[in-house]
């Protein structure tokens, strides 16, 4: 029987995670963990190679130049358009081992709309991978799903897995356009099944492009995590999760970590999803808010928004 989602209780449960009180050592550890899970993102038409270079520098050293932030970890990846992949890789590699440890993720498949012939979208993917993308964020055809053409959505994801080659795929559901949590669950299950059937390596499901409102919300992320959990319970395999868009504050990020811990941690005592391997935040402003919260923990006062460098 297909899984249904009751909206009222799902929202109530999602809200309950925000009631957890994360203090002191747990806060510090949570902030560092959140930082290490960020796909530091810039997806603007006006992006320049110079902006991407700043972003890469921030990705490698989030506390760059600010006293008290020297020990912060690098973020997980930078996320850019395909045209910026080469520049990003080159810039990251300049920072030695630490820079090489940061992945380059590229949005592709005619991001953010995906409203192009499949052939064009797959070519977009291949070019991003050739340019050096370690991870590819694809967007599904929401229209096909809403029209009832699930088979077509499956085929497109499968084809994208193949086009990715050695790069890891994140499947963007664009939940803001799916509207109901029932749909979110159905597409999550669908995407997970394809990732399973195609034996995709290290697949993720992701909420949003960030170009559609609402982007990531806690109820939506909860429902997607539950799909991942059910799959893990049934098969013992993992799928990653990436909420993206709208997560701007450290406090929000900690709420998400609480949700991951209490939803996924119970099936594996090691909190196996609480690592950048299996959970990411698609975010940009979040990095500096985390930095400011770390400064607050060590100094006991709030820093101004210009105390940490913008990417």
């Amino acid at each position: 029987m297909a899984h249904t989602v009751d909206k009222v209780m799902a929202e109530q449960r999602a809200a309950s995670f925000t009631k957890r009180s994360i203090k002191a050592s747990a806060k510090r550890a949570g902030l560092e963990l959140a930082l290490s899970m960020i796909d530091l993102t810039t997806l603007e038409g006006k992006d320049t190679p110079e902006k991407v270079r700043s972003l890469c520098r921030k990705a490698v050293n989030p506390g760059d130049g600010t006293a008290g932030l020297e020990t912060l970890p690098a973020v997980a990846a930078v996320c850019v358009y395909p045209t910026m992949v080469g520049a990003a890789r080159k810039e990251l590699d300049r920072f030695g081992a630490r820079g090489k440890g940061v992945n380059v993720a590229s949005v592709a498949t005619g991001f953010p709309s995906g409203q192009y012939p499949l052939k064009v979208r797959l070519e977009d993917v291949r070019r991003a991978v050739e340019a050096g993308a370690d991870e590819v964020d694809m967007v599904i055809s929401r229209g096909e799903f809403l029209a009832g053409n699930e088979k077509k959505v499956r085929e497109e994801i499968a084809a994208t897995v193949e086009a990715c080659g050695r790069a890891h795929l994140k499947v963007i559901l664009e939940t803001g356009e799916l509207e109901t949590l029932d749909n979110v669950r159905r597409v999550s299950d669908l995407a997970i099944e394809v990732l399973h059937d195609t034996r995709a390596d290290h697949g993720f499901i992701k909420t949003s492009t960030g170009k559609v409102e609402p982007a990531a919300t806690m109820p939506v992320t909860l429902v997607m995590l539950e799909a991942i959990r059910d799959y893990a319970l049934a098969t013992g395999r993992k799928i990653g999760m990436k909420p993206a868009g709208g997560i701007r504050t450290a406090k929000q990020a900690l709420h998400y970590l609480v949700m991951v811990k209490e939803t996924m941690g119970v099936i594996d005592d090691g909190d196996a999803w609480l690592t950048p391997e299996w959970f990411r935040f698609g975010a940009s402003a979040l990095v500096n808010d985390v930095c400011r919260q770390v400064l607050w923990l060590s100094k006991g006062r709030y820093s101004s928004r210009y105390d940490t460098a913008e990417a």
Binding site: E32, L33, S36, P73, A76, G101, D271, T275
Partner: peptide
């Protein structure tokens, strides 16, 4: 076929947090 090994690069501090993050 997977030559690259830099997925999820984390410092030891962050990975220590991830292996069992608990509330203070």
């Amino acid at each position: 076929g997977h030559a690259k090994q830099h997925v999820a690069a984390v410092t030891p501090a962050a990975s220590a947090a991830g292996r069992g993050w608990d509330y203070a």
